[in-house]
């Protein structure tokens, strides 16, 4: 039986860059625990010699020529930004 602790949920939320309240930690601990328990079903299967599928089609590396093409301009790329200055995305300060 897999158990997920509140500490694990907080750790995962931090990795996923999601702010969570204490109530949400409670809720996710319960729900993720249920889902992970359900996923234990897969352990009925012996998959020792089975190759994992990452992709269903038999595609190898796909290459194309690296040539400049018409695409969105810098001004266009900036126009949906929540905050910008001098043609650059502005973010909260990173250094003290």
């Amino acid at each position: 039986m897999a158990e997920i602790s509140k500490e694990q949920v907080k750790h995962v939320a931090n990795l996923a860059r999601l702010a969570v309240t204490e109530e949400e930690v409670e809720m996710f601990t319960q729900q993720l625990g249920d889902i992970i328990n359900y996923a234990e079903l897969l352990n009925e299967l012996d998959t020792t010699d089975v190759k994992p599928t990452t992709h269903v089609l038999d595609l190898k590396n796909v290459m194309r020529k690296d040539e400049p093409r018409e695409w969105i301009t810098k001004d266009e790329a900036m126009k949906n930004a929540p905050d910008q200055a001098n043609g650059q995305f502005r973010v909260p300060s990173i250094l003290e």
Partner: peptide
């Protein structure tokens, strides 16, 4: 996002993500 981050996180990757790929 939380479930996926958990399944990909260190220590759980083989047990959940890779297992699911094999299935």
């Amino acid at each position: 996002i939380m479930l996926g981050t958990f399944a990909l996180s260190s220590g759980y990757y083989d047990a959940y993500y890779k297992k699911a790929q094999k299935v």
